[in-house]
């Protein structure tokens, strides 16, 4: 609990930030599989409660959905999956790899503290989840590094926001990144078309990332890619001998004279970003670049406003 008598995770919802989003909404641009007519385009005609499949129970699932018969037969928790009842299923994929720990000295501050890329991404995820739950959309969360660390299926209940926020608050960045592999895995797993929101620094092979994104698109998901990078990663402003210690792999260090390598480094970062930009453009993916130097609420509000204007 924090000082206001609220759970700790509620601090992920910044009042000022939410105020900025008050009049904004995240509307799917393409077709999404929902049941409530209105905001999002649906491929189905009419209401449906049709059984779809069984799925293994994961924490966060409603106990009411457990198939006790299957449990009786196999002694395993399975959930009866029905055709989802939400109008928009959004899944936020949050990169919790070690590289997201990087904060730098030029990042925006929150409560007087410099935000790491992960903290920045966490605020983004929380804010987006809040936004969509308030739109009556279903939101899920998946955190990953080399593996899928946590998967919370999409729900639209207001109480689900707490589950997501609690998960966000308890997640700390860990090991190396394997973005492409995770994305392929998820693309296979999420069958219903929906909105995939990826919040990551995407430090992986750009070609593999683009292939993985293509996989999502192939599954006809709408993808929103929030690319978070620190200011230092974009400017490489170091001027004296430094030892760069890998945040993802302990003990991996590179001593070097930064000025000697700056131009080469920036060239490679630029190339990486440009290729992502082009790749996303070709796949009709919303690619949003977010530097931690800029306040997340401003950046997000800016993006949503732009998106709304485009959608209309």
């Amino acid at each position: 609990m924090n000082g206001n008598g609220q759970p700790e995770y509620m601090s992920l919802l910044d009042g000022e930030a939410l105020a900025k989003m008050q009049r904004l909404e995240l509307i799917a641009r393409g077709v999404v599989e929902g049941f409530v007519s209105g905001r999002h385009k649906s491929p189905y005609k009419g209401f449906s409660v049709e059984f779809a499949e069984h799925r293994e129970y994961v924490p966060g699932d409603n106990i009411r959905d457990l198939d006790w018969r299957v449990f009786g037969r196999s002694d395993r928790y399975y959930i009866k999956q029905y055709i989802e009842e939400t109008n928009l299923r959004a899944l936020i994929l949050l990169d919790a790899s070690g590289s997201m720990k990087y904060a730098g000295d030029l990042a925006a501050k929150h409560n007087g503290q410099l935000l790491s890329k992960f903290q920045y991404a966490r605020f983004l995820a929380a804010t987006l989840a809040h936004l969509m739950i308030h739109q009556q959309d279903a939101v899920g969360l998946a955190t990953f590094d080399t593996t899928l660390r946590r998967y919370i299926p999409s729900r639209s209940r207001a109480s689900h926001l707490r589950v997501i926020l609690a998960e966000l608050a308890s997640t700390e960045p860990g090991a190396e990144t394997s973005v492409a592999e995770i994305f392929h895995d998820l693309a296979d797993r999420i069958r219903r078309r929906g909105l995939i929101v990826i919040i990551s620094d995407l430090f992986d092979n750009v070609d593999e990332i683009l292939k993985a994104l293509h996989h999502f698109r192939y599954r006809r998901h709408e993808v929103l890619l929030l690319h978070v990078m620190a200011e230092e990663e974009l400017t490489f402003p170091f001027d004296r001998w430094s030892v760069f210690e890998n945040l993802e792999r302990s003990g991996h260090r590179i001593p070097l004279d930064p000025p000697a390598l700056r131009s080469e480094y920036l060239g490679r970062v630029d190339d990486f970003i440009r290729r992502l930009e082009i790749g996303c453009g070709q796949m009709n993916i919303d690619y949003v670049q977010m530097s931690t130097r800029r306040n997340f609420d401003v950046a997000l509000a800016h993006y949503l406003a732009q998106r709304m204007s485009r959608t209309r």
């Binding site: 070690g98 590289s99 997201m100 720990k101 990087y102 890329k117 620094d201 430090f203 992986d204 990078m229 620190a230 990663e233 170091f238 004296r240 001998w241 430094s242 030892v243 760069f244 210690e245 890998n246 945040l247 993802e248 792999r249 991996h252 590179i254 001593p255 070097l256 004279d257 000697a260 390598l261 080469e264 480094y265 060239g267 490679r268 970062v269 990486f272």
Partner: peptide, 28 residues
């Protein structure tokens, strides 16, 4: 001395550093 007094930087974007070094290290 410069090398000894090098500052430690916790760094995430290692892949760019490594690839930059791989191509420029010998020349540098």
């Amino acid at each position: 001395l410069n090398r000894r007094q090098a500052r430690m930087v916790d760094w995430g974007a290692m892949q760019f550093l490594e690839s930059s070094l791989a191509s420029r290290n010998r020349r540098i």
